[in-house]
Structures are given as C-alpha cells and as structure tokens.
Design a protein around this nucleic acid. Sequence first.
DNA 1: ATCAAATAATTAGTCAGCTAATTATATTGA
DNA 2: TCAATATAATTAGCTGACTAATTATTTGAT
Lengths: 148, 148
Amino acid sequence: MSQSHQEVAELLGAVPKAWRALLDQRLRPYGFSQATWQVLLKLGRAGEPLLQNELAARVGIEPASLVRLLDVLQADGWIVRQQDEQDRRAKRICLTAKAEQLSGELLQVADALKAELLGGLDAQELQTCIKVLAQIRAAAEQAQEPTA
Amino acid sequence: MSQSHQEVAELLGAVPKAWRALLDQRLRPYGFSQATWQVLLKLGRAGEPLLQNELAARVGIEPASLVRLLDVLQADGWIVRQQDEQDRRAKRICLTAKAEQLSGELLQVADALKAELLGGLDAQELQTCIKVLAQIRAAAEQAQEPTA
DNA sequence: ATCAAATAATTAGTCAGCTAATTATATTGA
DNA sequence: TCAATATAATTAGCTGACTAATTATTTGAT
C-alpha cells in the first residue's frame, strides 16, 4: 500500500533501537547496563524522590519490572527505598549522595548524544516531526480503548 | 536545554512501544506472542525463503536471537529449515503451506493497524517526519564509527 | 464502623533480546 | 595445495521486560 506508511514503520523500529544501543555503549564504562542507567537518569531529572509507581511510569516500564532494578541499585548503594509517611504501602526512591553526583555525569553523556543525533536537524522540520509523532501516539491511545 | 530535543526523545521511546503493544495484543488471538509473528510477517513480505542471516537483519535482531524463535515456529509446523545447496553452512527458512495462508492474515491485521495509526496524518507532514527520522538514523550510524 | 474494592510493592514464572564462544563449511593468500 | 581467516548457524549464560498472583494498607460505600 502506502510506501510512506511502510517507511515510517521501519524507521520507528530502527531509530530508537539504534539510539538506545549507542547510549548503552557510552554508559557501559560507568558500569551500568541497559536499564539501570535509565532509572538514575530519570531520578536525576526529577530532582526529588519519587514513588516507585511514578518512577516506573517515567522510565516507561511496569512497576513490577522496576523492582529488580532497584534491588540491584540499592545493593550497590545508588538508591535507598524510604518509607512514605502518609501511605505505609508506598516507598519513595531517593538517590544517595554518590549517585547524585554520578547522575549528573550520566545526564551529560545522554545530552551530548542527544545533541549529536539531533543537532543537525532543521528546527521547523523537527517541530513537524514531533507533531506527527504525537498524533501517532494519540491514535495509538484511541486504538486501545475503542469508545471508553 | 532544547525542549524539542527532549520531546522527540520521549516520543521515540513511547511511540514504537505503544505500537508494538497494540499489534501484539491484536495478534495474540492467533497464538503468537511478541517476536514470533514478526518472523512470519517478514517471511510473508519477502515472498521467498530467506537465509537465517538475512531474515534476522530484516526482523532487526541478531541471528543468535532468531534461533530460538525458529525452533518454536518449526516445532509448531510454521517454518522449515532447508539446507542451502550452494553453501552447506547456510539454511533457507521457508514458510509451510499453512503458514503461507496465515501470514496473509497477520499481514492484514498489521496493515489495518498501520492504517489506523497513520491514516489521519497529513501526507506532507508525514514526509517531513520520515526525512527527519532518516537523518537521525544517519547520525546514529555516524556516531558509531567515528571516522571509519 | 465495618466490609469490599482499590492501590503500592513484591514474587514467581515466562519470553525475548544480547554477547561470547563453538562447530562446520567456504574463501583467500602464500 | 593447504593453512589462515571469514562466515552461517548454534549453544550457553546474562539482562530486562511482561503478566498474574500475593501481601499490606488505604479508600469508599453502606
């Protein structure tokens, strides 16, 4: 059918994969692999402790998937789980002091790569691309819930 | 830094994930999960037997990762590994007759979803989006090999 | 006030991807 | 020719994601 549809489908498969692989490769020297650095990055960007729930949503994984990552990060002293005072079911995830510092470095690497990949783009065209991607995301949300 | 850069990074994380989850959900009634339907789709689109190598590249995974998927598909009678005659190391992956038929149905579901997600887009804007994504992919390839 | 339903985190079990190393065969170069 | 190198598929072992079920606590409805 539509050649454009096929093209964008393939690009949406390939581009994020390549991006992730690159970032993963550059962050590997820090000793983090695949998923753990994303947790530190999101916590770093948040600037405050987050509920496990909320953190999972920002990373884009299920809360259950986050549990093991936090176990690893906690064992290595990068985060602590702090009992929430209002809700005794909930825990707030805090960066330790050494992680605060490190997450700054990770952010620099991530932002440098981002600039490298996106720096050469025309600003107007990038805006259009964002608009289109947002429309696709909206269509995907609608597709999930037929009529709500 | 640049708000646009952050936005496109997030969209590139979220959109393909949502798309995949939707397609996975719709193909689950056929009894295939996550990765196996992609193999059948690509073989169906190819229209001829492919080397394992080549198939892995089209699916976007490593040849080693393909092995287990093929084991499962072969066990259920969807594909056969056929010894290549020129190169005795190589195998060509063929769809069985029942898989030929099924892959047509899977293709229809996949194409219907694609149309659903992309149908509402402005053609000109979609072209721009494709161009931008292709530029990002090119930048990612360059980033991998500093000067080659 | 209490009991039912919802929610936060966890555990268990499955599937899918990766890299590194292995085996068999092809290709290439001295 | 034949030894070194490269290539196709595989195996093994690791990481990370998911869903479903469990536990503890909170919220809501009567």
